[in-house]
């Protein structure tokens, strides 16, 4: 089974995201593999190992996305495609979907996996836009994925619980943290990642023009919200339970 994973390099999520004067997120320094995508890489490796298939990683991003891609290779992915182009700076989800769909289409695939949403942008619609462009069925929010005889069986998280969904391959599935426990790259994995095929593509290689990836949305203003001002902070032991209960009484809930 050929599994493709869509991955994103994001600024270190432990830092605070900053916007530049053009209202675009500043992406300096090495990016990291989006933690949400690690679950998708792990699920892909597990499925490919069980079926004797291979895992390909596809990512769009600036040059510093390479370290995130290398991490996916170090985890065990077999090859990667990195699409980078000056014309893609500030690309929105639609443009990104066009690029990723065009890259995925270049090779046969059985299953495309992705995280539910990126940890820096939270847009959460991109995998479905890609699925529609590829013309394949999909299941989002998978907490469990199994593939038997060309059919993916997915436990899909819902607001109320979960659904069981079956989906004929080829298909696209987005996975949650419950779907897999990401492996830590071994030293051997890190070493072998350096010699795995990493294809570098520009927009033109995918037959796309800059006009086709021009953003359709634009930040026009950023304003700080009125901070309501810090409340009171006390140390544990200073009648903490009584103080919290006073607040609950003030709110008329006890």
């Amino acid at each position: 089974m050929q599994v493709v994973v869509l991955v994103k390099s994001i600024p270190d999520p432990s830092g605070e995201a900053k916007l530049g004067p053009d209202f675009l997120v500043i992406r300096e320094g090495d990016g990291v593999l989006d933690p949400g995508d690690e679950y998708a890489v792990e699920a892909a490796l597990t499925l490919a190992e069980a079926s004797g298939g291979e895992v390909a990683v596809v990512s769009m991003g600036p040059a510093n996305a390479a370290s995130a891609i290398r991490r996916a290779l170090a985890m065990g992915a077999h090859r990667a495609t990195h699409i980078s182009d000056e014309a893609l700076r500030g690309a929105d989800a639609l443009a990104t979907a066009k690029v990723l769909a065009a890259a995925v289409r270049r090779s046969p695939f059985d299953l495309v996996l992705a995280g539910v949403e990126s940890t820096d942008g939270y847009t959460g619609t991109l995998p479905m836009t890609v699925a529609e462009m590829l013309g394949v069925p999909s299941a989002t929010f998978a907490r469990k994925v199994e593939v038997t005889a060309g059919v993916a069986r997915v436990e899909r998280q819902t607001e109320a619980g979960y659904d069981v969904v079956e989906c004929a391959l080829p298909a696209l599935v987005t996975v949650t943290a419950s779907a897999a426990e990401p492996r830590f790259p071994t030293l051997k994995g890190i070493m072998s990642a350096r010699s795995k095929p990493l294809e570098q593509l520009a927009l033109a290689d995918l037959g796309l023009s800059p006009a086709e990836v021009a953003p359709t949305q634009r930040v026009v203003a950023v304003e700080a919200t009125a901070e309501k001002g810090p409340g009171e902070v006390i140390q544990a032991g200073d009648d903490d339970a009584a103080r919290i209960a006073d607040l609950l009484a003030e709110a008329k809930v006890i």
């Binding site: 639609l94 979907a97 619609t125 836009t129 529609e132 999909s138 359709t216």
Partner: peptide
Amino acid sequence: STHDSRDVAGRLQARTGSALMSN
């Protein structure tokens, strides 16, 4: 912003090519 509506919006965007804003 629910699971099902998000999925429909993402697919519709591929067909209409229109701007989609989340959250």
